[in-house]
Design a protein around this nucleic acid. Sequence first.
RNA 1: GGCGAGUUGGUAGAGUGGUUAUGCAGCGGAUUGCAAAUCCGCGUACACGAGUUCGAUUCUCGUACUCGCCUCCA
Length: 475
Amino acid sequence: MTDIYLYNTKTRTKGQQFTPIDDKNVRMYVCGPTVYDRAHLGNARPVIVFDVLNRLLRHVYGDKHVTYVRNFTDVDDKINARAAESGRSIGDITDETIQWFLDDMGAVGAIEPDHMPRATAYIAPMVAMIEDLIAKGHAYAAEGHVLFSVSSYAEYGALSGRSVDDMIAGARVEVAPYKRDPMDFVLWKPSDADTPGWDSPWGRGRPGWHIECSAMAHDLLGAQFDIHGGGNDLTFPHHENEIAQSKCAGHDFANVWLHNEMLQVEGKKMSKSLGNFFTVRDLLDQGVSGEVIRLVMLSTHYRKPMDWTETKRKEAEKTLSDWMSVLQKHGYSAKTVEILKAAGDWAADAELMGVLGNDLNTPGALARLHVLSKGRTAEALAPFAHGLETLGLVSDWSAAEASASDGDDLEDWIAPVIDRLLVERSTARADKNWGEADRLRDLLNAAGVQVTDIAGEASWAQGPDFDPSVLEALK
RNA sequence: GGCGAGUUGGUAGAGUGGUUAUGCAGCGGAUUGCAAAUCCGCGUACACGAGUUCGAUUCUCGUACUCGCCUCCA
C-alpha cells in the first residue's frame, strides 16, 4: 500500500498522511475551465497535475473507489461577450469549447473525470443553497442581487491567510451601493433581456461564479469530501468564497486543499500582450505530441512555478524517443503487456509509487523511471513500462508499438531511397572503401537520417532534423 | 501596502541534519575501419550573514534578489 502525503493549503503542511473519509469512495473536486475559448497551455497544468493524483488514488484505492469531479463553467460574462461579438448562440459556443477542451486534454493523456457537470444544469441547487444562506442570515438580497455577507463568517480568509481588515485596507475592492460591506461577493445577479437568466425568488438572473462550485460539489460529492483542487490563483477569492458559502450552509466541505503553481513561458508570465500566449492546440498543431507536453509538465513539481521552454520541449522529445526505443528493443506491445500481466510480472515499482505519493513528486518519479529504464529484459522493464502507464505517458501499448516503428507516415519513395543508399554503403564497407562509405553516411546524416550499425548490420531512423527534401535529388 | 512562494553544480530539476538524486550538455573509457548508437566511469552545487548543533545545503532569525496572488486570467 502506497502512503500518500499531500500539501494542504489549509494547514500549509504536508505532515499528515492522507486518509480518505471513506476508502471505498475517495472524492475529489477540481475547478474546471470557463468555456469560451481554446485552453491555453497554462490551463493544462492543473488538468495534468490532478490527473496524476486521480491515477495515484485509483492505484491505491482501486478504480471503482474514486470519484473525480471537474466542472465546466458555462455561464459567465466572458461567454456572453463572445456570443455577442460573434453572433453565435451561447449554447453553440459552450458546446464547441467543451469538446475542444476534452479533445485537447485527452491529447495530453488526461483521463476524463467521473463527472463533468455544467453549471447551467445545476441552477436549481444553486438557488436552493442561496435561499438557505439567506435564511441562515449569511446572505441578503439587494437590488436584484444576492450577496454573501463576509462578516457573518468569522473564519473568512483562513485558507488564503488574509484578514478582511487587511484586504479592505490595501486592496481594490469593488464598492457597490447595494453591498453592506465592500468584501461581500455576489451569489446571484440580475440579467437583462439579452443576458442568459433563470427565474428565481430575486427575479430573473444568473449565479455568481463561486456558488457554482459549492453547489455542484455538494450535489455530486456530498456535504464533506476529501480533496478540492485548482490553480493557486483560485485560492483567493474563489476558494475562500466557496468555503465561506459551503461552511455557512452547514457543509463540512473539503478536507484537503491542493493548489498548483502557475506556468510561465521562457521565464515570463504567459500573456497576450507579451506575445507568448499559445494554446494546447497550437502546440499539437505544430507537431508537439501530447506526451511531450505532459512530460514537460511533470518535470517540475506542481507547487513550483513551471517554465515552458523550447529547450525543455526538445529534451522531453529526446527522452520519450529514448524510452520508446528501449521498449521497442525489447518487443513491447499490447501482447507483451498481456503476457507480463498473465505471468504476474506487471506490477508497480514500490519506490516510484512512494515518491509519487510524497506530495506528487513527479520529477522524482521521472528520475526513478530513468533508472528503471536500464532494465535488460522485457520482464525487468515491466516496472518501467508500468510506471509510464501510471504517469499517463503511455495509454495504449499497441499505439506505442506503432509510433516506435519507423516509416509509418513517410511518403512511399523515401524508404527505398534510404535503403538503396545503405546497401551501397554496405558494399563500400565490404570493399573497405571507407571514403565512399562515409560519403553515403554523411549524405544520410545531412537529411537527418540516423544511421546505426549494430553487429555489422546497418539500420536507420528519423532523427530530430529529418528532412526528406535533401533526398529528393537521389530518387 | 497586504498575503504567499522561491533562490541547488554548465543547464533543467529532486532531495536530505553527517552517506550517489536524475536528465541534458561536457570530459574519459569500452565498442567501432572512423563515427553514430549503446554501455561503463568522472566532475562539481546547495544566494548572503548570524544562530542552534559534535556536524547545516537541509532547522531558526535576518538581508538581498526573483516570482505569484490580492483585478470572476488556471
